[in-house]
Each structure stands twice: as structure tokens, then as C-alpha cells.
Design a protein around this nucleic acid. Structure first.
Lengths: 236, 236
DNA sequence: TAGATTGTTAATCGATTAACAATC
DNA sequence: TAGATTGTTAATCGATTAACAATC
């Protein structure tokens, strides 16, 4: 991995997708692939693939292409999913449970060490063998357990205060599902999953497509109308 | 709204965030705001805000700024969240339930018309007053009900086949939570929420920050070592 | 060796920021 | 009117694509 200059955010956000496709190739038993073949599958340019990968070093071989397994492992290293990440989930509602139940995360080295909630009726319950603790225990738990990542699946009203507590307790990263932005120091990573914003983008695109369809139909109707006129009036 | 040329994806993806901040301003009772004030709150440049908004027309007024309420409503129109969107949820697991239970979506005009599953033990259950139907009923349900959007909260193995059925049944948009890409015709919108990819980006950033910290400490240790040498050896 | 395909430089394209005239 | 702030053009910056020499 070439040290030094910053790698652009756009490149990073594409890496997990490369990783996913390489995983699928491995499942298909494909051992090598050229940037061109991969570009067809992924619907991106071969140039972009080569450019992206060369940010981290030469993983390919001229005249051969890329070794699928090797590239897969290298990307895992870059993304840090070869290491173990300990995480806690704050908010044991449906979303928190969905994450706790998604076994692929544990497979990728993301280990759920604890779950927290403020609702008395859920505290003490077990979800996939993880006990739901009272949020009061947050600080003492973090003092005793090494945890890097906190998942925030709580209402937006509670999120900023909890985020502050997490930062004070030394958490390194927050995976934020609350519908609000969090203010944290520079050395704390926040990755937002704003589902409602995602749904609005979907809405925009649906509406634009609908508008297009309607416009097309209007034009069609207009043309039909003109032909009608032509029939009744004079023809050139 | 100025018709014509395509608006860039980057602009669209920022609109929901503007919308969120404008909503908060309204709650605070703020009636007008300048691009500069807003830029401070949102941590973007004022130039970008003005440039973004002017893609859709002049919503502001020189010497005054923007009327919060007016801008809020205009963005809602652009995003199409002033209209009603009917949706179904396919997969009634934790993630599907989380979406069904998130009342803000209904508030924004996204109405959940039905839920579907293949697991016999959940079919017939009610979630927030919505009955979980067998996936076998999908086509007949869509024939009888006007539904634009389908939310896919099912395993990646099932997703492509279900997506095909949805497209055939005339669905206009898929909100895809399955960890796979879907192949659909051009006139069907897909918005992906790939949580595992999001988590990998988080992992990358955590690791880079950790590496930085470690490097700093190493340098510090080196410096300390040199000083040590200096003490024992000669000083200039 | 010849053919294939990478790694990398150069060219293009698009998005962001700066600047300022228009105007409320 | 003077001051403020937009709308918009121009300048800069960054990301994507094309091209090709290097090399397996």
C-alpha cells in the first residue's frame, strides 16, 4: 500500500463494490479477470478500475489481468476488514436488531459486543445471545471492553447527547442511523445512513421519470391532433 | 422549475439535506436565512447552496436571502414528496419492520400498502395494521392496487428473482436493501442501500485514522530516542 | 516472440468555488 | 439611497476517460 497522498473519497466508496464482485467471481470459480471483463460486469469503465486500484499499488500483471483471490484479499486489507472490529449497538429496536441479526457482519470481522437501550421493558432481553443493557451502563461497559464502533439506531432527538457520551468514552467511530448530523471531533469517524434522504432521492427520480412519460404522451396526443387537422383541412 | 437540461446527481443528493436543515430552521421559528448563514450551519460553501438552488429557479431575493418556509415547500415539490407514494415492503424481517414502523415516512407521503414474505410462520401477522401477505399474492395485489415503490428487505439470493417479478408487474421503483445489484430496465428506478458497503467505508476510515495515530506515536518515540542520544553524546 | 493487458500519463469532462454585477 | 445578498459568469479544482508505452 503506497503511503503518502490522500486517496479520494470516491475511490474508497467504490472499493466495497469491487470487493463484492470479486467475491462473486470467486464463488463462480473464476481465478483471473481483466479490467475489461470486470468493467462489463460492473458497468463501469476499465480505465476507472485500473486507475482506482493503482492508488494502492500494482495488483495486476500485464498480459494476464488480475488474480481474483489475491485482489480480493488485498482490498480486504485496504478496507481493514481483515482486522477485527468490536462494536456496540445503541437502540435495540427493529433496526438495531436487524443489524445484530445480520450474520455477514460478524463474518467480516465486525463483532457485536453489546446492545443498549433506555426502555425498561427491553433491558435484560437477549438478541442473538447479546444481552440488552441499560444505557446507564454505557460508560462502565466501554471502560471495561475495547470497542471501536458504536451503531446509533435511536431517534434523532436522543442521538446528539448519546454521541457526546460516546466521544467522551473514547469511541473511535459512529455508524449513525439517526436522522440528524452529529458534531464530533476530527478524530472520530461518522458514517451516516440517512434512510429518509435515500427515499427522497428515490422519490425525485420516480417523479422525473413519471413527468417524462407524461410529456411523451402529451406530445403523442398533440401529433395525433395535428394529423386529425391535416385530414380535415388541406394537405400540402 | 426550469425544464430542460439534466440536473446532476450530486445536486439531487444534497437536496434532502437542505430540506432537513430548513425543517429544523422552521422548528426554531427562523423565517429567513441567507446562503451564508445556512452554509455555516451545514458546513458547505454558500456558493454551492446558491448554485444548487439555482438549478431549479430563483428561490431567493437579493438583499433578503431565502424565505425558509417557501424554500422548504419548493424543495418538497422538487423531490416529489408533496405527492403521495404508495409502497409495499417485501421481506417482513427486522429491517422491513423497521421501515414499516418509521412513522416519518407516512408523514412524508410514503404510504405502506402491503407487506410480503415467504415464511409461513409470519404470513397473516399484522405489523402496524398492515397484514403480511404471502409472496404468491404479489402479482394479484399489484394488479388491484396502485403501487409505485417496492422495498426489498430480503436476502440477496432471493432479490434478483423478486425484482424481475416486480418489474413485470409494472413497479416503477425499487428501494433495494439486498446486498446485490439488480438488473432492471431503464425506466425502473433502483436506489440501493448497501449497509455492508457503508460499514466497510467506516472500517477504512477508522483504520486510516488508527494508522495515523500509530505513526505519530512512532515519530514521537523516535524523537524521544534521538534526544536520549543527544544527551548521552555530544550536543551542538 | 507476439498478443494481451496492465500501469500511467495526458486529455476531457464535470463539479465546486470565487467573484461580481444585478437588484431587492 | 446604501447595504445586503442573490443569481450568474468565470476560474479552479478534481475526477473520469482515453491513449499508449511498458511489460508479462
Amino acid at each position: 500500500m503506497t503511503e503518502g497522498r490522500q486517496i479520494s473519497k470516491a475511490v474508497i466508496s467504490r472499493l466495497p463494490r469491487y470487493y463484492r464482485y470479486l467475491g462473486e467471481l470467486m464463488e463462480e470459480g473464476i481465478e483471473r479477470i481483466s479490467s475489461n471483463e470486470l468493467s462489463v460486469r460492473m458497468k463501469v469503465t476499465a480505465s476507472q478500475i485500473r486507475q482506482d486500484l493503482n492508488n494502492f499499488g500494482g495488483f495486476g500483471q500485464q498480459g494476464y489481468g488480475y488474480n481474483v483471490r489475491y485482489l480480493y484479499d488485498e482490498i480486504a486489507k485496504i478496507l481493514g476488514i481483515d482486522r477485527q472490529h468490536n462494536l456496540i449497538i445503541i437502540g435495540s429496536g427493529n433496526l438495531g436488531q436487524a443489524i445484530a441479526n445480520y450474520t455477514n457482519f460478524q463474518k467480516r470481522g465486525f463483532l457485536i459486543k453489546g446492545m443498549f437501550d433506555i426502555r425498561p421493558e427491553v433491558i435484560g432481553r437477549e438478541i442473538r445471545g447479546i444481552r440488552v443493557r441499560s444505557l446507564d451502563e454505557l460508560e462502565s461497559f466501554l471502560a471495561e471492553n475495547e470497542v471501536q464502533i458504536a451503531t446509533l439506531t435511536i431517534p434523532k432527538t436522543e442521538a446528539p447527547a448519546v454521541a457526546d457520551r460516546l466521544v467522551k468514552a473514547g469511541i473511535k467511530a459512529i455508524w449513525n442511523f439517526a436522522h440528524t448530523d452529529l458534531n464530533v471531533p476530527d478524530d472520530v469517524v461518522v458514517e451516516n445512513v440517512h434512510l429518509s434522504e435515500n427515499l427522497m432521492r428515490l422519490s425525485y427520480r420516480v417523479c422525473r421519470l413519471q413527468d417524462e412519460r407524461e410529456q411523451k404522451e402529451r406530445k403523442k396526443a398533440e401529433r395525433a391532433h395535428k394529423t386529425e387537422d391535416g385530414r380535415n383541412g388541406k394537405r400540402s
